[in-house]
Design a binder for these strands. Structure first.
Lengths: 106, 106
DNA sequence: AGTAAATATCGACTTTTCTCGATTTATCGA
DNA sequence: TCGATAAATCGAGAAAAGTCGATATTTACT
């Protein structure tokens, strides 16, 4: 994790900020599938799949897919592929590292 | 201080990030005037004046002036006007508040 | 092999940001 | 009051980001 322009560019968009927040409490935020399904995805698959985030965001699939990889590229998200699905989750270690860096290095 | 798109947009530019860093240790970073002058500006005037930041940045005066007011608008900088000069300094309280918010609310 | 589904990538157009030079505003000193 | 200086604001053209629909890739299931 490091403080640079790319990182803050990723955060400089309301939808990408929203995605980070949704993934903080997905059982509450992701409503296109049941709460049980969300819990299963998070614990067994390691995240939320793209289509459920697309539904929540209300933007084109291509746009959301790009946003997710942008957030992964700068270390704020991580993902696991299981078959056809890619599951995205927050990279909590990097989010905490970022907070520390802002406190000390910004 | 609050986490929003505007704040991160302000941080999503290398020159604006640089300005924040320069103002962290201006005696070392600001070299268009003497070290004693920098110390005097910081302690007696409450910051570094625009023209010295313009020289350091190497961009047009209008651009840097805009950047400084952008950074002030989102709470990362504060300023004092003394006569013809406006002196900018970091808003350390808000920077620490931001770090805390990222650790807890992002 | 062939089809279908989920995601990723591409190309194009729109919107926003960057950046400048010119101008305006504010303040000082003669 | 006039001229000079510092900073802020304005308008315009260039560069970057946002966004979409179409297409490609990957994987699963017959």
């Amino acid at each position: 994790m490091e403080i640079n322009e790319k990182l803050f560019k990723a955060l400089a968009n309301q939808t990408r900020l929203d995605i980070l927040q949704w993934l903080k409490d997905p059982e509450k935020e992701i409503t296109s599938v049941s709460c049980e399904t969300v819990r299963y995805m998070m614990t067994e698959k390691g995240g939320i799949c793209v289509q459920d985030i697309v539904k929540k965001a209300g933007l084109a699939q291509s746009t959301v897919s790009k946003y997710l990889s942008d957030l992964q590229d700068c270390g704020l998200l991580e993902s696991e592929r299981h078959g056809k699905w890619t599951y995205y989750r927050r990279n909590e270690a990097n989010l905490q590292a970022l907070a520390k860096l802002i406190a000390t290095a910004l």
